[in-house]
Nucleic acid binder design. Structure first.
Length: 198
DNA sequence: GCCACGATAGTG
DNA sequence: ACTATCGTGGCG
């Protein structure tokens, strides 16, 4: 039985929220069939001090939401074609977010076409995850307390073990911050996007 | 205004 | 290694 995560869950340090989001479920109730996917890979992004974070330049029009209240969605477009799903963390006024990088389809992804089935076998990578869950910029700013797309946990699901920790993906430009171990994933899970050497 | 450059992913 | 494709933000 899935129950929506309370807003207070997100009002904590980004790395803590990131780690604890592993094993939770993304529930997408928009559209004809509810889609559910299990979170297997996340990254924490911090505030202005984090050279890899969109908050690094302060509360610009795009990044301002990262400085606002937690438990809101931050969705943006990268490379002109892929959407990325983030959840705002920390307390109001403190910048932070968690990027959801990959999830494992659980329900609602039945697709007749064999080729498409291969594509959605894993929602591996932030762009594919958003495509598979039909997440676009219209979700930007949604409040997770009452949104049709939300995070939930399952009290009966086995607890997450074997958590891998590594540097974040695609932030090589960020100097020392590129090396920080702020990526968390389920070790050995086939839906994780970049095959770690563990 | 103009322009370089991504928190990507598929293909060769 | 190359590329599709466009919003953001730095700079003038």
């Amino acid at each position: 039985m899935l129950s929506r995560l309370a807003p207070a869950f997100f009002a904590r340090p980004s790395a803590t929220v990131a780690r604890e989001l592993l094993g939770t479920f993304i529930v997408q109730t928009e559209g004809p069939t509810t889609k559910i996917a299990r979170v297997v890979e996340v990254e924490a992004y911090l505030g202005q001090q984090d050279a890899a974070s969109h908050a690094r330049r302060g509360p610009t029009p795009r990044a301002a939401i990262m400085f606002g209240p937690p438990a809101h969605l931050y969705v943006y477009l990268v490379y002109g074609m892929h959407h990325c799903l983030n959840v705002v963390t920390e307390s109001d006024g403190v910048a932070g977010a968690v990027l959801i990088r990959a999830a494992e389809p659980v329900r609602g992804f039945a697709i007749a076409d064999q080729k498409e089935r291969a594509i959605w076998r894993a929602l591996a990578g932030p762009g594919k995850l958003c495509a598979g869950l039909e997440i676009t910029r219209r979700h930007n700013g949604m409040n997770l307390g009452d949104s049709p797309l939300y995070f939930a946990n399952d009290a009966e699901a086995p607890p997450v073990t074997q958590v891998g920790v590594s540097a974040r993906i695609g932030v090589a430009y960020a100097g020392a911050w590129a090396k920080r171990k702020l990526r968390f994933y389920l070790r050995g899970n086939p839906s994780v996007s970049v095959r770690p050497n563990d």
